[in-house]
Design a protein around this nucleic acid. Structure first.
Lengths: 345, 345
DNA sequence: CCTGGCGCATCTACCGGTTCATTGGACAGG
DNA sequence: CCTGTCCAATGAACCGGTAGATGCGCCAGG
C-alpha cells in the first residue's frame, strides 16, 4: 500500500480512503490512485485491516453437515444475503456431535467473526457461555428455542411432528408409526427428535400408543437408514398403515424398500417425510412431505445480520428477535385415506 | 494476552509460546499460564497472529455450488483433511459463473489464504493471473487440466464421456443420445461439456452421429432439467434407445419422466448418469452410473496441501503434481442390451 | 485586510500478536 | 577462581492497515 501511495504521489491514508470510502476523495486523486493500484496489482490485506478496525466481516455458520441439501440451501441463502454487504461466510461442520460444536465455536471465536449463526438447538455449557460472552450477535436457526441465546430464525420442529400426525389421523389411519434416529450422547439430532416428540404427543392425545416409533442409527440419516428402519418397523408391526419419516431422505429410502418388498404405497401403506427435498417432489409416487424454506431461513438470517451491523450502536440489538418462518404440509401421492376394515389386509 | 501474562507473572512472549509450542516452556510455567487463560476466558486473536506471522491458516475453496452433493462431499473431505493441521476452509460459490469466479478470487486473495483450491477448469485472464501471482499453492480439482496452473487433483471428464458411450455401444445400442446443459457466456459447466464431448467423440468413431445430444438450460442441472431435456429428446427422436445424462440428478429426473410417460427403463430405453449420487443407488430401478469419489478428491487435496505446508521452503513445491483419481463405471438396472430389430418397437 | 470556519489530505498512534536480536544466567573448561 | 559458551527468557520492532486528531489552504464574513 505504501508503494501504491508513493506511485500515486499521495499519502497512505488517501489510498485507504479510496478503497473504503471513495466519495471522500476528490475525483482526480481517486483516479490516480486507482491507476496505481491497477498498475502494481495491489490487493489490499484485509487481515491487517481487520486487526486495525476490529471488524473482520466474517460471519461464522455452524451447521451439522453440508451433505444435507437443506443445510446447504441455508448456507447458500445466508451467503447470498451477506455478499452484498461484503461479509464472508466461515462454515464449520459439527457432524451432529456436541463436543465437536464446542471445539468449533472455540476455533471460530479466535477468528473474531462479527456474528455467529448456529444450527444446533442444544449446546454444552462451555459452548453456551462462549457464545454469550462473545459480545457479537448470535443467531440460532432451524428451530424456535424456548430460551434463545440471542436471536433466532426457524420454525417449531415439535409442531411439524404434530402436523404430520394430525394429517395421518385425518386420513383415518390408526396403526401409525414413525422412523428416526437415536440421540445418544455422541451424535445428536435434536430437531429430528423434536419432530418425533410432537408426533408422539398427538398420537397419545388420540388414544394411540407411540410404540411404533422406531429410533435407530445415528444422524445424519440416509437413504439406507430409511430402508433399514422401515424394515424394522414392518417386522415389528406388519399391519402398520401409516409412517412418518423424520426426513425425506429416510422417506425415500423407505419408499424404495417398500417397492422391493411389493408393498404398495399408498394403497398398502401411507408414507410421509419432512423437508420437501427435491427428491420428494420428483420421485414416483411423489412423497407427501412438510416443506420448510431452507434457503429462506438463510436469507432472513443474513438480512437480519446486515441490519444489525448497520444499526451498530443503535438500540436495536438490545431486543433479540425471533422469526418463525413456519412450514407447510404438502400432500402428494404417498398418503391416502385408510381403507375399511373389510379391505384386503 | 497482556492480562494473561500479568496474571501468570510471565512475559507476553511466554504466553504466546505456551499456545504455539508448549514443549519449549517448563511444565510449571505452562500450567500457571493455562490457569490464567482459563480464569480470564482468554481467546487468542488469530487475526493479529496472522498479520504478524504472515500465515492465516486459511485455505480457500472455490466451488460452483454447495447445493450439489458431489461438491459438498469434496468440501467436507477437504475440511476433514485440513482440520488436524489446523487449517480452516473458506468457501466461495461461483454458481457456475465465470465473472463471479474472478470476483471471488479477488475477494479471497485479500484474506491472504495459504492456498487456493478451485473447481473451475477455465478462468478469465485476470483470474488466472491473480492465481499465478498469488505466490501460494493452487490446486485445480475435479478435472485433469492440460496445462495446470500449479497442482491438480481430479479425473478426466472427457474419458468419462468416452466410457459412457462405449458402455452403451457395447450393449448393442445404435440410436444413442445424451442430455446436458448449454454453456453460454454466463453460466459455464465445462466439466459437463467435457463429458459430452468425450461421449460424442466415441459416437463419431463408431460412425454414429452426435445429433441426439441435447444441450438445454444452464448449470446447475436439476431433476426438472432431466425431465425437460429427456422430453425434448423423446420428441426429437422417439426411437432413441439409450441416453447418457451428464449427472445422476438429470438421470433421475429423466427416469421419473419416463415412468410418467409409460416408457419402461431399461426395456424401452437404457439410461445412465454420472456421479454415483446416493439417489442413483437407491432408486428403483437403480441407475447405471459412473462413480467418482468426491470426498476422496477433497481428502487428497487436503493431504497434498498439508504436505506442502510442512515442507514449506523445501524443494517439493517446485514440482507441481497432478493426481488422477480415476472413475468407475457402475452397471446397474437402467441399462440393458438392445433388443433385436424384430422386437416390440 | 484580517480572522474564523470548513474540507481535504496528512500524521501519529495503535490493533494484538510474532519474529528476531539481545541480554542475563548457568555451566563447563582453562 | 575467572572467563567463554550456550541456552532460555526477554524486549523492541514490526506485520499492513485504520481511527482520530492535526495541519494546511481556501472561502466567506466582519
Amino acid at each position: 500500500m505504501r508503494d501504491v501511495s508513493r506511485l500515486a504521489g499521495v499519502s497512505q491514508m488517501t489510498v485507504s480512503r479510496v478503497l473504503a470510502d471513495p466519495d471522500l476523495v476528490s475525483e482526480a486523486t481517486r483516479l490516480r490512485v486507482m491507476k496505481a493500484i491497477e498498475q502494481l496489482g495491489y490487493v489490499p490485506d484485509r487481515v491487517a485491516g481487520s486487526l486495525s478496525s476490529r471488524r473482520t466481516n466474517f460471519v461464522t455458520a455452524i451447521l451439522p453437515t453440508l451433505t444435507n441439501s437443506n443445510f446447504a440451501d441455508t448456507a447458500q441463502g445466508l451467503a447470498e444475503a451477506l455478499r452484498p454487504a461484503d461479509y464472508q461466510l466461515l462454515i464449520g461442520y459439527t457432524m451432529y456431535k456436541l463436543a465437536e460444536e464446542e471445539r468449533i465455536i472455540r476455533a471460530m471465536l479466535s477468528r473474531r467473526p462479527d456474528a455467529i449463526v448456529v444450527a444446533g438447538m442444544v449446546h454444552t455449557k462451555p459452548a453456551s457461555e462462549m457464545l454469550l460472552r462473545a459480545g457479537i450477535p448470535i443467531v440460532e436457526i432451524w428451530d424456535v428455542p424456548d430460551k434463545p441465546i440471542d436471536h433466532a430464525v426457524g420454525f417449531s420442529n415439535f409442531e411439524v411432528g404434530r402436523a404430520a400426525a394430525r394429517h395421518l389421523l385425518s386420513l383415518g389411519h390408526r396403526r401409525i408409526g414413525a422412523i428416526g434416529s437415536r440421540t445418544d450422547g455422541e451424535a445428536i439430532d435434536l430437531r429430528g427428535e423434536s419432530r418425533l416428540a410432537g408426533f408422539a404427543s398427538v398420537l397419545r392425545e388420540a388414544g394411540i400408543g407411540d410404540e411404533l416409533i422406531v429410533r435407530e442409527g445415528t444422524a445424519p440419516v440416509s437413504h439406507d437408514h430409511g430402508a433399514q428402519t422401515i424394515s424394522i418397523l414392518l417386522e415389528r408391526a406388519p399391519d402398520v398403515e401409516a409412517v412418518f419419516a423424520v426426513s425425506d431422505i429416510s422417506a425415500f429410502g423407505a419408499l424404495m424398500e417398500c417397492h422391493r418388498r411389493g408393498i404398495k404405497v399408498p394403497a398398502d401403506l401411507s408414507l410421509m417425510g419432512f423437508g420437501d427435498f427435491d427428491i420428494a417432489r420428483q420421485c414416483v409416487p411423489a412423497i407427501t412431505t412438510i416443506r420448510v424454506d431452507a434457503a429462506q431461513i438463510g436469507r432472513l438470517t443474513g438480512e437480519m445480520l446486515v441490519r444489525l451491523f448497520n444499526e451498530e450502536g443503535g438500540a436495536a440489538d438490545l431486543q433479540p428477535s425471533t422469526i418463525d418462518v413456519g412450514f407447510t404440509l404438502v400432500p402428494r401421492q404417498t398418503t391416502a385415506p385408510a381403507v375399511l376394515e373389510a379391505g384386503l389386509s
